[in-house]
Write a protein that binds this DNA or RNA. Structure first.
Lengths: 109, 109
DNA sequence: TAGGCATCTCATTGGTGACTGATACAGTCT
DNA sequence: AGACTGTATCAGTCACCAATGAGATGCCTA
């Protein structure tokens, strides 16, 4: 859809490039089906790696790889199960998730 | 950081995969430096292709490619300049941008 | 009309990142 | 101890997507 502008603006060839490094990191982190699904799965409480791998139909080491990236970003935390500490349960850091969203939204508003 | 869980949850290997198709599309669209920068540049009013290309230090056809994707997603609109209709000014569709953000945020909350 | 400018389109190519496979590590059970 | 489960790590491979290059289109000016 194309609308006519009322006046001809003069060219501004000196615009500064916006700093999008941080929001870009957030968007890049979210722009993967497995990672985004993990964060969605963890909305309603912690889950272990094997549960998430089964839910998403991907292999456990693959999930583990993505969890490592979410961990490094601070969006999730790991906790060994008390009864069987072979299993590692992950939960979202809600504050960090909210911060990340805020960073991304802040770049657009 | 690793905290012990109080009890051992029983495994839930039947979790449904969350539907993240739409929020994933949004995140994928934002997860590019040029596209995210374009949306940031357009916060304070319309700009033409050459202005944005200069600001971002990339070639015009490259910017045009990314604008085409943002257009298809409905996030920006094109308008020929009234005085010199060679130039095409782009502006954000604020409603569509807000919707896109809402879609992405909704997958995480 | 010709020539130049601004933008668009599209096929090709290069680089980044996700998946794989193998291996290592941590914990459980007999 | 040894076998097994669950998770983590890492190098290698492959697919996808952004940048490029060439060409086309639309508009302006002389």
């Amino acid at each position: 859809m194309r609308v006519e502008l009322p006046v001809l603006p003069d060219l501004r060839m000196d615009l500064p490039a916006p700093d999008v490094d941080e929001p870009l990191d957030v968007a890049t982190l979210l722009a993967d089906r497995v990672r985004l699904s993990i964060l969605a799965l963890l909305r309603d409480g912690p889950h272990c790696v094997c549960e998430m791998a089964a839910a998403l139909g991907v292999r456990e080491n693959n999930v583990s790889n993505h969890l490592a990236r979410l961990r490094e970003a601070g969006l999730v935390q790991a906790a060994r199960a008390a009864g069987d500490s072979r299993r590692v349960y992950y939960e979202r850091d809600e504050v960090a998730v909210a911060d990340a969203i805020g960073t991304l939204v802040g770049a657009l508003r």
